[in-house]
């Protein structure tokens, strides 16, 4: 894969982002910086603002206040999107189309029409043998894999995954994480959201999010140490309590 040269600074910088939907504050002045080539885990309960955060990085949401920078470009910015890969929560695919048509469509919009790369993405998720099957004939896990392939084919520099392993069986989940690790070794940055704490252990760094605010960030190890707790779940609760005491 191509080695990214353009961005000398951190690939994603989030500066004091505030976003309100009606009366609900989804992001409450959140700041965060993601390093190149790391797997950054966005962790928090449902409704914490994980999806809103990821969507604002992709530029689907324009913050009310604050600024998101992706590869030194102020978001929202359409042209930069071809260097990103965004996998939505539910596998968003065209049911009537085949696996290959789906992957080729999304890759094509990103500017990649190289059939070899599309084939490589299909092989990576082990679906090359089902390339000509319509999506509606596939199982849920297979759909997730197609979804992943359609995010990878154009070789993005940053990949954003919104709860990619929801409804995915343990074996496939292990495969996904092996893929993710393999990608970061090539200098690709991955941001993944999850509410499953044991998945968090696999990330290089974590951000604990609750109520649209960043509670803490660091490696799983350092977060546990800081909270003086045996596991991440307890550490998360400890940080949440600390935050409440401050407020």
């Amino acid at each position: 894969m191509t080695s990214p040269e353009s961005a000398k600074t951190e690939p994603v910088r989030i500066e004091g982002v505030y976003k309100k939907f009606g009366k609900v504050v989804a992001l409450h002045g959140l700041s965060l910086t993601i390093q190149r080539g790391e797997i950054f885990g966005v962790l928090g309960p449902n409704g914490a603002g994980k999806s809103t955060l990821i969507r604002s990085i992709v530029g689907l949401i324009k913050p009310d206040q604050g600024q998101v920078w992706v590869l030194d470009e102020a978001m929202p910015s359409k042209p930069i999107l071809s260097r990103l890969g965004y996998m939505t929560q539910a596998s968003a695919l065209y049911d009537d189309l085949t696996v290959r048509q789906n992957v080729a469509f999304f890759a094509g919009l990103m500017g990649c029409r190289d059939q070899a790369k599309i084939q490589a993405a299909l092989e990576l998720v082990e679906l090359a043998h089902r390339a000509d099957s319509p999506i509606r004939t596939l199982s849920g896990g297979m759909r997730q894999r197609v979804s992943l392939a359609s995010v990878l084919a154009h070789e993005p520099e940053i990949i954003l995954l919104d709860e990619p392993t929801v409804g995915v069986d343990p074996q496939l989940r292990a495969q996904f994480w092996a893929h993710f690790r393999h990608l970061t070794e090539q200098g690709i940055t991955i941001i993944v959201s999850s509410h499953v704490m044991d998945e968090a252990e696999r990330c290089d760094r974590l951000g604990f999010i609750r109520g649209g605010q960043l509670l803490a960030e660091g490696s799983a190890e350092s977060l546990r140490k800081q909270a003086n707790k045996a596991n991440l779940e307890e550490a998360f609760l400890w940080f949440a309590e600390q935050k409440e005491m401050v407020q």
Binding site: L60, A92, D95
Partner: peptide, 14 residues
């Protein structure tokens, strides 16, 4: 409904 519109909007297409 399928979320593909959201994915389209996360691509450079206008």
């Amino acid at each position: 409904l399928a979320g593909t519109l959201e994915r389209l909007q996360a691509t450079p297409i206008q």
